[in-house]
Structures are given as C-alpha cells and as structure tokens.
C-alpha cells in the first residue's frame, strides 16, 4: 500500500529550493559506511520513540562492528545544523527521527545529493531521501481491543502527546478497536499539548492519567513519547493497567503494563543502515504496518499473566484479519475525522 505524501507542501516547497538534482538517485555499494542518527527532542533515552531508534542503531553496531554518530536535539531549530553537520562531515546514511525534522531535512537534502537520508514518521519527497512511515492505527486497534477486554469498569483511556493528526490517528484506531469488541466501551482521550514540549512532560502526562483514572478508567494507553513514562508511572501508582507504545514498555512496571503497541523504529533505522551498507538502499516512501512487521503488539514474560487466552486469541485473529484485509481500519489522516 503506497500512501500519498503527507506533506504536500514539502514537495511543493522543495521545487523552490536551489540546486534541484537532475541526476538519478545516488547508488553506492561501499564496504565502509559512516552512519549517523539525529534524534528528535526528548532524546535517545525517552524510553519510547527515540530510544527505539537508538536500539536499532546499537544493534547495527553490534552486528557489523560499524560505529555510528548521533545527536540529540534540544530544540527543533537545531535540526538543520545537526543534519548539515553530519552530511558535511561525510556521514552517510543520515537517519533523522521524527516528523518535526521534515522541513529541516527538506532544506538540507538537496544540498548533499550524494548523501543518503532517511526520515521516520514523515514524508520528504527528495531523490535522496527514504521516508519511513508507519500505519500505527493498525497497532492501536489491537491494543484497543485488548484494553476493552481487560477493563472491568468498561472505561479505558488514552493520553496523547502532541495534538496532531499522527497521534489522533492512533487514538482513533484505539477507539475503533475497543468498540470492535465492546460496542459500549467508554474511551477517554486527552492530549498533553500542541508543541514539542508535549513529548517531554511526564508530570502533565501523569496528571491527565490520574484524572482519567478518577473518571473510572482502569486501562490507559500512552501515546506521548517521553511524557508516556509519567502515564505508565501514574497507572502503576494507582494499581491499574497501562499500555506502552513505540518501544516494548512491558518491563517498565512488570505486571502493570497490559501490553505495548510496538512501532519498530529500531527496524527502520537498522534496515536503513544495512541497506546502505550492502548497496541496496532505495529512496521513496516505505510504509510499515502489521504485515511488514513494522507494527506489532508485545507479549512477553512481563505481561503473560495479564493476558487471558481469549484476549490472546482475539488479538492474533484480528492481526491476521487486518493483514489479509478482512478488517480495514479507518485512517484518521485521510479525512481528519474518526467514525464512532
């Protein structure tokens, strides 16, 4: 499934940029590469999104012995300088993490036509950029089902980080999944903020969780990057269940995290590095979902006891049905609405 570029403006704007490359996409087959990663604000130890990217880079290092360089943004204005510095120093491929860096990459990529770039979570339409996007709504659908089945109060919650379509798409999938198994399930949704700060505010995340718990929620999903640590903490403090996202967060509070909606940013980073290493790197859009193994739900020794047979069977069946196309999940980002 090929999705339309999300940010048409980027494509249009890039037409204005100087030095449009007329040559075909760069091809390499080198033995030694100098990979680099630029993490988004929140940093590589956010326990979620960026950390997953870090895991992938580390795995590549272990597997191949090739070291990589990395930079953590303090604020989004540093993005251009970071990407440009890596490219100028001859790093290749340069993987940038997070949609916030899209406009910076769109700016820098044409300046270094020989460098291979990859971006996670956003589309940048350039001949030397690989854009990795995830169909997160497929995963949140399944954890929504599990949440509704695990809930005794029939009320479940989700705390989103930044209020943007990307996160609304996940809350929408969550809601649809919950209603798929229990049509009367009550789903509470809150967002932390409208700026990048919303990814890094565990205290506010915890506050919202406490309110949702007060309103009766006994399972709460975090979709908030570093903020989510506070969500899972508040859930654990109140002895209810949390659901992790991005990375497998089941082990943060064993027995208190029902499952995690895993988004394999690690695989995206690893694959981008590996493809560059073996010379089969491709520009363009890579859409990853359940079928490609880019999205999944986590079951391990930390949550095994929380998962009943019914739940496991239902989740596995739904996963198979989504892959086969028997269940189609509405994508919020197509029309910016969520059917109830």
């Amino acid at each position: 499934m090929q999705r339309k570029p999300l940010l048409g403006t980027i494509a249009v704007l890039s037409a204005f940029l100087p030095g449009i490359i007329a040559t075909s996409s760069p091809s390499f087959a080198d033995e030694t590469i100098k990979p680099a990663v630029v993490y988004s604000t929140g940093g590589k130890f956010d326990g979620a999104f960026n950390q997953s990217a870090f895991t992938g880079a580390e795995k590549f290092k272990t597997d191949t012995g090739i070291d990589y360089r990395e930079f953590e943004l303090r604020n989004d204005t540093q993005s251009q300088q970071a990407i440009r510095t890596f490219a100028r120093d001859g790093h290749d491929p340069v993987v940038v993490i997070g949609f916030q860096q899209a406009s910076a990459l769109a700016e820098v990529a044409p300046e270094f036509p020989e460098t291979r770039f990859a971006i996670v979570d956003m589309v940048v339409d350039q001949p030397n950029v690989q854009s990795v996007v995830f169909r997160e709504h497929e995963g949140s659908f399944i954890v929504g089902m599990l949440a509704a089945m695990a809930s005794n109060s029939n009320t479940i919650g989700a705390v989103g980080g930044m209020d943007i379509p990307l996160i609304r798409r996940m809350t929408c999938g969550y809601q649809l999944g919950a209603h798929y198994v229990k049509s009367d399930a009550n789903v509470l949704v809150n967002f932390v903020g409208t700026t990048g700060a919303a990814w890094n505010d565990p205290i506010r995340g915890g506050e919202l969780t406490k309110t949702q718990i007060g309103k009766g929620a006994d399972v709460v999903l975090q979709l908030a990057g570093g903020t989510g640590i506070g969500v899972l903490q508040a859930a654990s403090d109140a002895k209810i269940l949390g659901i992790g996202s991005d990375a497998n967060q089941n082990g943060l509070h064993p027995g208190q995290v029902l499952t995690s909606m895993v988004k394999h940013v690690d695989v995206a980073v690893y694959e981008a590095f590996k493809a560059a290493r073996y010379g089969n790197w491709q520009p363009g859009i890579k859409s990853l979902g359940l079928a490609e193994g880019g999205i999944d739900w986590a079951l391990d020794e930390n949550n095994r006891d929380l998962m009943t047979d019914d739940m496991e069977v239902a989740a596995k069946k739904a996963k198979a049905d989504i892959i086969r196309g028997k269940i189609t999940i509405h994508d919020y980002m197509i029309d910016n609405t969520c059917p109830n």
Partner: peptide, 24 residues
Amino acid sequence: MVYLLVNVLRPEGSMSPESARIAE
C-alpha cells in the same frame, strides 16, 4: 505565539507548529 502558530499560521496538512516557508 503557540496559539497563533498552531491555530492560525500552520499551513494546512502540516503537523509541526511552524508557519509556511517564506518565498525564496
């Protein structure tokens, strides 16, 4: 500024709270 960037200046279809690009 957060209010204006998120609600007024952010171009349609963009997720980052930033304005459109200034003409070259």
